[in-house]
């Protein structure tokens, strides 16, 4: 019984196969394997016939300097992502607190701001910081031209994440806290927030993926992140396809790792909550 309960849903859709079904699945597996292999072969062939597999496109990855330069870019990406993440964390928390403060005009304002940042593309915000401060005579370093819009875009989402966390705290606890004479603010600070934060840590980590993705338009403001440095390499090596593919894989792996970390933390804290 317990074994049946731990089945994932997609396996649960199928029952233990009989001999006929087993044969059919074997045939289907073989056919689909062939189809997949053919598709891969077609892709490789396209690379081959267009000369993209030529060593000159790939040999640069054997050079230490290539990786050092990309590594520098990656550091830029990490710097922006972490700074933007930290700002978004604070701003998101402030927006959520404002929205749940019970002070009507403040709540409305925070709601509008939250919905605004969630409802516009981060690219638009980046263009804003690229053009507007300059038009007002403000000279913003490219780091901040990138970090601020990314942070603002994330803060709207984080405000909602925090709010979901606050809502997940059982109402009885708030009532109990208020009934023993704690003020609203104290209840929030001492009872609700510590739990809410624990609930949402996995979501916060997952949100870092969005932040990392948003940083990739750094080239708009000429900030040297991973993508921008790749573009520099492309012009010097004339190896567009290989470089963009490698960069894409790096981004995918980073974000995959972040997602995995988020799931791992969720599982770990999940156990804690049960205890």
């Amino acid at each position: 019984m317990s074994a049946a309960r731990t089945l994932s849903m997609r396996d649960a859709l199928y029952e233990a196969p009989g001999p006929r079904t087993r044969r059919r699945v074997r045939i289907g597996t073989a056919v689909s394997a062939v189809v997949v292999l053919l598709a891969i072969a077609a892709v490789v062939r396209q690379f081959w016939v267009t000369g993209q597999l030529a060593p000159r496109y790939w040999s640069l990855f054997l050079q230490w300097t290539t990786w050092r330069f990309l590594g520098q870019g990656l550091l830029g990406t990490v710097a922006v992502a972490l700074t933007a993440g930290a700002i978004a964390l604070v701003l998101g928390l402030v927006l959520m607190l404002g929205r749940t403060s019970g002070v009507r005009p403040l709540a409305a304002l925070c709601r509008v701001v939250t919905d605004f940042f969630r409802g516009v593309p981060s690219l638009l915000l980046i263009y804003f910081f690229f053009f507007v401060p300059a038009q007002l005579g403000l000279k913003l370093p490219s780091f901040w031209m990138l970090t601020l819009p990314v942070a603002l875009a994330a803060s709207g989402v984080l405000a909602e994440v925090f709010r979901a966390g606050v809502n997940a705290v059982p109402r009885g606890q708030v009532e109990a806290a208020l009934s023993i004479g704690l003020s609203r603010g104290k209840t929030m600070r001492k009872i609700v927030l510590p739990q809410a934060v624990r609930y949402v840590i996995p979501s916060l980590i997952a949100q870092l993926v969005v932040v990392v993705k948003d940083t990739t338009v750094a080239y708009v403001v000429s900030y040297p992140d991973l993508m921008q440095n790749a573009r520099v390499l492309i012009t010097s090596y004339d190896a567009l396809v290989s470089l963009y593919l490698v960069i894409a894989v790096i981004y995918i792996l980073i974000n995959y790792a972040i997602n995995k970390a988020s799931v791992a933390v969720a599982n770990r804290t999940g156990v804690k909550i049960v205890r």
Partner: peptide
């Protein structure tokens, strides 16, 4: 519980026989 669930093949069995009105329990389809 497992015994009960094998009777309509929600659980499969490794060996032995299950008969419904004398007919062997079909394996699929």
């Amino acid at each position: 519980s497992t015994l009960c669930r094998t009777i309509n093949r929600l659980e499969t069995i490794d060996s032995g026989e299950i008969l419904i009105e004398g007919e062997p329990l079909p394996q699929e389809g």
